[in-house]
Design a protein around this nucleic acid. Sequence first.
DNA 1: CCTAGCGTGTGATAAAGGTCACAGCGGATC
DNA 2: GATCCGCTGTGACCTTTATCACACGCTAGG
Lengths: 191, 191
Amino acid sequence: MKSHPLRRQIEEIVKLSDDEFVFVLEHFRPKTFKKHQIVLHEGDYAHFDYFVVEGLMRVSRLDLDGKDHILQFGMENWWITDAEAFHRKSKSTLIVDCLEDTKALALSLENKEKLSRELFKMQSFFLKKTTNGYIALQKRILCFLSSNAHERYHNLTTLYPGLIQRVPKSMIASYLGVTRETLSRLSKADT
Amino acid sequence: MKSHPLRRQIEEIVKLSDDEFVFVLEHFRPKTFKKHQIVLHEGDYAHFDYFVVEGLMRVSRLDLDGKDHILQFGMENWWITDAEAFHRKSKSTLIVDCLEDTKALALSLENKEKLSRELFKMQSFFLKKTTNGYIALQKRILCFLSSNAHERYHNLTTLYPGLIQRVPKSMIASYLGVTRETLSRLSKADT
DNA sequence: CCTAGCGTGTGATAAAGGTCACAGCGGATC
DNA sequence: GATCCGCTGTGACCTTTATCACACGCTAGG
């Protein structure tokens, strides 16, 4: 039980007793999804933030021309949801779906707030995770500001080498903000 | 005192008594800076997160070609620092400087953590602010993924109309990730 | 075994944006 | 009042990336 992936992630930031972890876990609901299954439809309320135990999820937006733009991937130990819809209780403008069969732990906003209130450490944990996420997004923005497509691709391969193996290159392209054709030409030059 | 800008911002999220606000304020150090003054040099430690009371600050990165890329502006009631260097106690890779004479309240990491510990509400406040910042950055990334320079400019003018009046267009261009020449041509077509 | 569909590569061409060079304007300084 | 400098606009040209079209290999399902 010490080795539960959620517990390991929390304990990188705050220490928990066995009892406390049991209490924490009671606030999550286990869910399983099939490959291609849509977890959150555009226009629906985002009832849960998902902690990915196994598998691979994706958050994307479909634009007016029918093209989709991938905002985030979620591999094992990542948290994934439409953050705005989840936290503001508004309708989702994004789509969450699964690129592989996926097991996840679903946390509702009510339970997140309850956990934060009743176990101070958990609010510290959420703050730290959110801060780290904020820093990561700042880096991604700086990458858009100062790097061309080739450099962004190279940056991604060194940052998440495992991801490149697991998702189609067309999706990597979508995440990087280039077309699949351009990415194909870039990665050829890269070897 | 009810109308202190910091208090107003906090009370949008959690309520404070007069005593509590005095306690909060004791953790901040007032600072004044002149236009063009550098508040945080590249390579220095980011000792403070700044709450801007009056004036206008900027966070940017200087790249290897000598071009600078503006990550964020900070007007009145915004928080501004090199988030990574501040939270990880590492050396800054970014520069914080002032575009106008500026009055700010400086909060050290130690005081931020002390406040979070001793006044639970303040940790809730920081979590909420960080979450909102995270959501805003996600939107900016989606804008990079799905919009061209013209749309990004238009988006910025509607999001922060006041900003356009206060900063040179060359800096707006830098924030948007285009050259000042391109922005100049775009904004002409926009009228 | 056949075939439909997905993922990928590649060529030709177009569009968006960058680079370089120069000019003008207006405020600040002495 | 002369001068300097930051800011902006604009023309000519070049680079990067998008678009469109087509081909090929692989694999899942009938």
